[in-house]
């Protein structure tokens, strides 16, 4: 059964532009999908439609069969920037989704500390965001989105600003965290290798339309060996060709 279904969803702005044009896509429960495309093709807009932060001008987005009418509790969102509150500690930031609904209980605190441990930040719960590195801030943002254990996680190029090594570590953290509760994921990126490494299925977007879908039949759990396997490289090349084919012939920078 599909967990997320995007049906003929379009989005236009009053100034006359069509940003998204009749998008159809479904994500099965527990699946990890990636959405790739060059800057400005509408990836963020599509993600915000799914999140309920924007309302589609045509078509509908359904989560578990229910049309999305606004931001919901079942969705976690990771923004491109870590977006932490500088005046709150790491632990307070992590518990923000909880503390906005009720007073955090000791059980919530334990869960937050467990998450911090999983992303390698144990012992840093009393720090402030400005005392963390970029990678550590991204880890906090990721853990914050998962603290309420949402069944659906949406991520908008969350690792784009990180160096290659840190990015690989975070990709592994993400896979590990999502495997715990079989979280359904839609991950936006412009990095081909990242999409192939993380996803079960990759959608290629171009000029506000979905042009291609590429299944990634790599076994899980995926580790470092996968990244350097011929199979992985062949899939990256295939995705790259799909993106070129989708494009107007302008070569896209290989992002890794």
């Amino acid at each position: 059964m599909s967990f997320v279904s995007i049906e003929q969803a379009g989005y236009g702005v009053p100034s006359g532009g069509t940003i998204l044009d009749r998008i159809d896509w479904t994500i099965g429960e527990g699946e990890f999908h990636a959405l790739v495309g060059r800057s400005g093709c509408g990836k963020t807009t599509l993600l915000k439609l799914v999140a309920g932060l924007l309302a589609p001008s045509t078509g509908t987005v359904r989560i578990q069969g229910e049309p999305v009418r606004g931001p919901g509790a079942q969705v976690g969102f990771v923004f491109q920037a870590p977006t932490l509150l500088e005046w709150r500690t790491v632990l307070d930031n992590l518990l923000l989704p909880v503390s906005l609904t009720r007073r955090p209980q000791p059980a919530d605190r334990r869960k937050a500390e467990e998450l911090l441990d999983l992303v390698g930040l144990s012992g840093l719960e009393g720090r402030y965001p400005s005392q963390l590195s970029g990678g550590q801030q991204s880890r906090v943002a990721l853990a914050r989105a998962l603290v309420t254990e949402p069944p659906l996680l949406l991520l908008d190029e969350p690792f784009a600003a990180l160096d290659a090594i840190t990015r690989e570590e975070l990709q592994n953290d993400l896979l590990k965290l999502c495997a715990r509760h079989r979280t359904t994921v839609l991950f936006v990126t412009h990095d081909i290798a990242e999409a192939v490494y993380l996803a079960d299925r990759v959608a290629v977007m171009e000029g506000g339309q979905l042009r291609h879908a590429l299944p990634v039949p790599l076994a899980r759990p995926r580790g470092r060996d996968v990244r350097y396997s011929p199979r992985f490289n062949a899939l990256c090349l295939e995705l790259r060709h799909a993106m070129d084919g989708a494009g107007s012939g302008v070569a896209l920078e290989r992002a890794s």
Partner: peptide, 28 residues
């Protein structure tokens, strides 16, 4: 920061919560 507003919207914070826990501290 518009990103933080969007975060609070995503977390379904009420208007009062957004004022007290986001706008006033960040404007302090």
């Amino acid at each position: 920061d518009p990103n933080k507003r969007e975060l609070f919207r995503m977390l379904r914070a009420t208007r009062l919560q957004t004022l007290l826990r986001l706008k006033i501290p960040s404007g302090l």
